[in-house]
């Protein structure tokens, strides 16, 4: 066998292995998705949206409490996290730029983005739940805010830097003060990018379970009072799925399906925004 033949054979083997691993990886993922869709659609019904939790064995249990709770928790986290993140990102891109402080903040945020979310839960437990004496929706939202902040901050920073500096210079030349340049020119130029970042950050915190386990805890009934424990789709899913009751497990799948579809939709919309911007 010549050297060339040997190389071609080795090449074919490695390429076949790579393709095989792609097939293995993707089939696992298709398996998970199809399990999710099949069980989710099977469990979906109108009662799920209309009814609150019920004791096991009760046919008409629903997820209304978890859906509304989740919505409240994520909405508050977004209300806190987005303005803070966007402003901090503005500092990095427009004021700090390459300064040491700005670079340190970037590095620390990058690390925070991959830090274990359950530790954030423990932190919020210590500063909110322990002093107030009980689990609460506020604690849950604060935990989600902390997770959201670095994501919004870094995408804002990146997206603002994409705005051409000629735009800023043009605005400065017209005599605009810096805050006006930023709020009326730079933000406008980076609108689609920042929006995408926010959507992805919301999608990310919407799927968080670990930091909610001992902050917002759970509630089997509808509660809209943020100072009380609050149900979320993720924690409800966890509790129902690990319970021995079949009807609860079914509700768990429904929650998993609704949550995944919500998160995938946000991700797809975010991508479309970016594509549209690139197409311009």
């Amino acid at each position: 066998m010549t050297h060339t033949q040997k190389r071609i054979i080795i090449n074919n083997i490695v390429m076949a292995l790579s393709t095989l691993s792609a097939v293995i990886g993707i089939s696992f993922l298709i398996w998970i998705l199809s399990v999710l869709v099949i069980n989710g659609i099977d469990a979906l019904s109108m009662t799920i949206f209309a009814n609150e939790g019920a004791p096991p064995g009760n046919e008409d249990g629903g997820l209304k409490h978890a859906l509304i709770g989740q919505l409240i928790l994520v909405t508050y986290a977004t209300l806190f996290g987005v303005p803070l993140g966007v402003l901090a990102g503005t500092y990095l891109s427009e004021y700090g730029q390459k300064a040491k402080l700005a670079e340190t903040i970037r590095d620390v945020s990058d690390i925070m983005m991959s830090a274990p979310s359950i530790v954030i839960g423990a932190f919020v437990y210590a500063i909110v739940v322990a002093p107030t004496g009980h689990f609460s929706g506020w604690a849950g939202s604060i935990a989600l805010t902390i997770i959201m902040l670095p994501i919004v901050l870094r995408t804002t920073d990146d997206m603002l830097q994409l705005v051409p500096s000629t735009l800023r210079e043009a605005a400065f030349a017209l005599g605009a003060p810096k805050y006006k340049v930023i709020t009326q020119v730079v933000y406008r130029g980076a609108k689609a990018g920042i929006l995408t970042g926010i959507l992805l950050a919301v999608a990310r915190v919407a799927g968080e379970t670990a930091p909610l386990l001992f902050t917002s805890f759970n509630d089997n009934f509808l509660n809209t009072d943020m100072s009380q424990p609050m149900a979320s789709l993720t924690v409800t899913m966890y509790n129902y799925a690990t319970s021995p009751y079949e009807d609860w497990q079914k509700l768990g799948w429904a929650a998993a399906f609704i949550l995944s579809m919500f998160i995938l939709t946000l991700n797809i919309i975010g991508r479309l925004f970016l594509l549209k911007r690139k197409g311009k």
Binding site: A203, G207, Y238, I263, L264
Partner: peptide
């Protein structure tokens, strides 16, 4: 798929 929450992988 990287965006799917880990709780779903756990449940599966």
């Amino acid at each position: 798929l990287a965006a799917i929450p880990s709780v779903i992988y756990g449940m599966w």
